[in-house]
Simulated scan of single mutants.
Amino acid sequence: MKIDFNKNADGLVPAIVQDATTKNVLMLGYMNEEALAKTQETKKVTFYSRSKQRLWTKGEESGNFLNLVDIKNDCDNDTLLISVNPVGPTCHTGSDTCWNEENTSNFGFLSQLEKVIEQRRTAGSGDTSYVASLFEKGINKIAQKVGEEAVETVIEAKDNNDELFLYESADLLFHYLILLQAKGFTLKDIEAELQKRHR
C-alpha cells in the first residue's frame, strides 16, 4: 500500500473509520506514517493528534478501542478507509459515531419498507391500507399469507419464468416483514440470530 504522506505539508492523511459489519462511518481522524505503522502492528487504530501533537490510540483512556479489520487507500493514495470492530461508542461524547447516529445495521430499501409497515401497523382504525387490514385480521391471517406466498414462490422456482419467480419472492419477503413485526421483531433480530450461528 503506497500512501502519499507528502501531499500535505504536515505529512498527514485523512483516515475515515468505518464499522466492518454495519458499514456506518464512525469518525474521521488523521494519520502520519508512524500512526499507520503502529495501527498495523498493534491492530488498534492509532491517529496523529493535531491538538496534542503526538500519536493517539483511540480508546487509550476510555477503553473504547477500534480493532483493525482492514485498511484501504483511495485512488489518489492520499486518504485511508479503515474498517474496524469498535469496542463501545466511538465519539468522546458517548455517541456511537461522531455524527451522533446509532451504529446499527441498515438494509437500504428494506429498512424503509419496515418503517412503512410500522407506520401502517400503528396508524389506527382510519388506515384502510392492505398492511393495516392484515394486522387487523391478526397473527393467524398474517402467518397464513406467508405460507401461501412461500408455496407460490416454490412453485415458480420449479418453472422457468424468472419474472414470476421474482414477483412471488417479493410477495413472500413483504409478507414475512409483516409477520416479523406482528411477532415483535425486525430484520435486525434475524441478522443477530444469523451472526450468532456464524460464530
Rank of each mutant, 00 (worst) to 15 (best):
V45H: 01
F47Y: 15
Y48W: 15
S51Y: 00
S51C: 01
K52M: 01
K52W: 01
Q53Y: 00
R54G: 02
L55A: 09
L55I: 08
W56M: 04
T57R: 14
K58W: 10
K58H: 11
E60Q: 13
S62R: 04
G63V: 08
F65L: 07
L66N: 05
V69S: 07
D70Q: 15
D70R: 14
D70L: 11
I71A: 01
N73C: 01
C75E: 14
D76N: 14
D76E: 14
D76P: 02
D78H: 02
L81N: 03
I82C: 04
I82R: 03
I82Y: 04
S83E: 14
S83L: 15
G88W: 04
P89K: 05
T93M: 02
S95K: 13
S95T: 13
D96P: 09
D96M: 12
D96K: 08
D96C: 09
T97V: 13
T97L: 10
C98N: 12
C98I: 12
N100T: 11
E102Q: 14
N103F: 08
N103H: 10
N103Q: 09
T104W: 00
G108N: 05
F109C: 07
F109D: 11
L110I: 07
Q112E: 15
E114A: 08
K115Y: 01
V116T: 05
I117G: 02
R120E: 15
T122I: 11
G124Q: 07
S125T: 13
